[in-house]
């Protein structure tokens, strides 16, 4: 008999600390499955962000490093440069990657660092209590946009993936979503591609994952999935960007 479904070796059997309906757990699992399928667990180094996924290393069963808020790509750059045979990825939220860490993101991408970036876009700051993120939609209510994000003074949702497209050092950009089983399968395929690119030495690869935060969207898990499909994807269309 062939075993077709099991607990990934790279994912520890621990209780989750994420809220019900949160996307982080799904993304962690997809990464673990990909690491297992590529047989790279013993040479993988994950760089965890500061954000809700700050303890991602408590879930993954491979070497990991912490990084100060926004600095994951600086930490990862150095790791990959001093240990070029390892497979290094960062896992970052939208505040981490596209606000406080924008400089590190753009420059690691522009240097063409041979890294894999998993970018979790949930349109809010989860860890600190649901404040506005650079990716927050216009009109979206958050702890710091009580009347909804206004363009005047708060600007537009930042499309960092589209911005990175113009950099020659960037080899692969894809936006995926976790709002349905079909989309989750596509997300996994994109993550796998981003890891394969690194294994083949192709350069900077980033997968942006649209991920639900029911807690700070003020929705049920089911409503959040619908909101992604009906609202968020209009601002952040899925598919290959580069």
């Amino acid at each position: 008999m062939k075993k077709i479904f099991s607990h990934p070796r790279s994912l520890r059997k621990v209780t989750t600390h994420y809220c019900p309906g949160c996307g982080h757990g799904i993304a962690h699992r997809l990464i673990s499955e990909v690491v297992d399928e590529l047989g790279i667990r013993e040479k993988t180094i994950g760089v965890a962000p500061v954000g809700c996924a700050v303890v991602a290393y408590d879930y993954w069963d491979f070497d990991c490093s912490e990084a100060a808020h926004g600095r994951a790509l600086a930490v990862a750059t150095a790791i990959k440069r001093v240990k070029p045979k390892t497979i290094v990825f960062t896992y970052q939220g939208d505040g981490d990657l596209a606000a406080i860490g924008t400089n590190e993101t753009i420059h690691a991408a522009n240097r063409g660092e041979n890294l894999t970036v998993i970018f979790i876009n949930n349109a809010v700051y989860g860890m600190t209590g649901g404040q506005m993120a650079p990716t927050t939609l216009v009109g979206q209510k958050t702890a710091t946009t009580p009347k909804g994000r206004e363009v005047k003074g708060q600007g537009y949702p930042l499309k960092i993936s589209e911005m990175l497209k113009v950099l020659p050092g960037v080899k692969y950009l894809e936006r995926v979503s976790l709002h349905s089983p079909q989309e989750i399968l596509k997300a996994k395929a994109a993550i796998k591609q981003a890891f394969l690119n690194q294994i083949q030495g192709k350069g900077f690869s980033l997968v942006e994952i649209i991920s639900p935060c029911p807690t700070y969207w003020g929705m049920s898990p089911r409503q959040s999935l619908n909101w992604i499909k009906e609202v968020m994807l209009k601002e952040f269309p899925l598919g290959r960007i580069k």
């Binding site: 990084a67 990862a76 150095a78 790791i79 240990k83």
Partner: peptide, 19 residues
């Protein structure tokens, strides 16, 4: 590495040292 800022530089040092 010529880093993009002192912030990046010191955090690169963190990564290399961790290895």
């Amino acid at each position: 590495i010529q880093a993009e800022s002192e912030l990046a530089a010191i955090n690169m040092v963190f990564g290399a040292s961790a290895c």
